[in-house]
Each structure stands twice: as C-alpha cells, then as structure tokens.
Amino acid sequence: MTTASSADHPTRRDFLFVATGAAAAVGAAATVWPLVAQMNPDAATIAAGAPIQVDLAPIAEGQDIKVFWRGKPIYISHRTKKQIQEAQSVALSSLPDPQPDSARVKAGHDQWLVVIGICTHLGCIPIAHEGNYDGFFCPCHGSQYDSSGRIRQGPAPANLAVPPYAFLSDTKIQIG
C-alpha cells in the first residue's frame, strides 16, 4: 500500500474521497438538525406563552394569589408592613444569595412581591405563609424563603426568581 506516499503527495483519488466524506458529513449534520429541532416548543406553545395581565385590586393586604404564566406558578403577594419591614432590614451579609429587597420589587410598589413559585433547589412548589421567615417553605427538601422570596435556609442555592413584569397601573401588572 502507498499510504505514506499518498499522504505526502495528495492525489486526485484522495481529494475525491475527502470531498465525498465531507459531503456525507455535511448531509448527516443537516439531517440531524430537524430531528433535534422538533423537540423545541412548537409554535402554538410559544404563542400561548404570550404576556398575561393580572388585576391586583382584589388582593387584600396579607393575601397572595397564584397565577400561571408559561406553565409556571407565579406568586403575587400583597405584603404587610411587617413583611416589608423584615425584608428590608435583614443584613445582606447574612444571606446565602445576597440581594436587597429593593432589587426584587418595583420602586414605589413595595407591597407587591411577584416571584416564580418554583424552588431553586429541584423545582417543587414552596408553600406560602410557612416557614420561619414569614415567606415560603418548600416541603420537598425543607428550603425556606423570606418575605422577599430570598433563600434563608435549606439546600436551595438561590432566591426565588422574579419574572419579567411591569405595572400598567397601580392595580394592574403585565407578566412576560
């Protein structure tokens, strides 16, 4: 065989083999693309994930409601003075995931906490108004969140996520 010499002096034969192999590789990759891409959300799912509007007027102080956006539960809490006080006064250095309360609510709307109600540990739904921090308690593995939705105790690594939202008026928000 002439493997060594053909490596030194590429022949037309080598070029043909390389070109054919390359074309086969390109074809295979282009075939795999749609086979994998089909797993992404379809157009109907994406359309159903459009922003939603929530009327806050019926939620009394100390109450909270759960709404769904993109299949995720969103907690909207109307916090009491005490809860706001607690959330604002805690020393940031004592938090596992330090974040001031002001970064988690909209300015001028301190009483409204809007968080995605999914535990950052492994995705269970924390229960509101439970635990030692006047916030949320996750029954799965015992993570505890405070009245700002920040992780205080337990295995969860991060604070409850804040979804993108904006106030359309004082009593109406749009999530998404």
Partner: peptide, 28 residues
C-alpha cells in the same frame, strides 16, 4: 409519536398541528 395523540377526537387535529406548528413537523 412524540407529538401525536392517539385519540379518536384528537388524532386528526394532532396530525395537523404536527404539520403546522411543530418545528420541521411537515418535513417529518
């Protein structure tokens, strides 16, 4: 089969949704 619904009321529609909404569903 990941996108199809084997139910008499939903099967026809699910095939149409595959063709219309799923990424490259028409191709598959």
């Amino acid at each position: 089969a990941m996108h199809y619904t084997p139910h008499a009321d939903l099967a026809f529609k699910s095939v149409e949704l595959i063709v219309r909404d799923v990424n490259y569903g028409w191709l598959l």
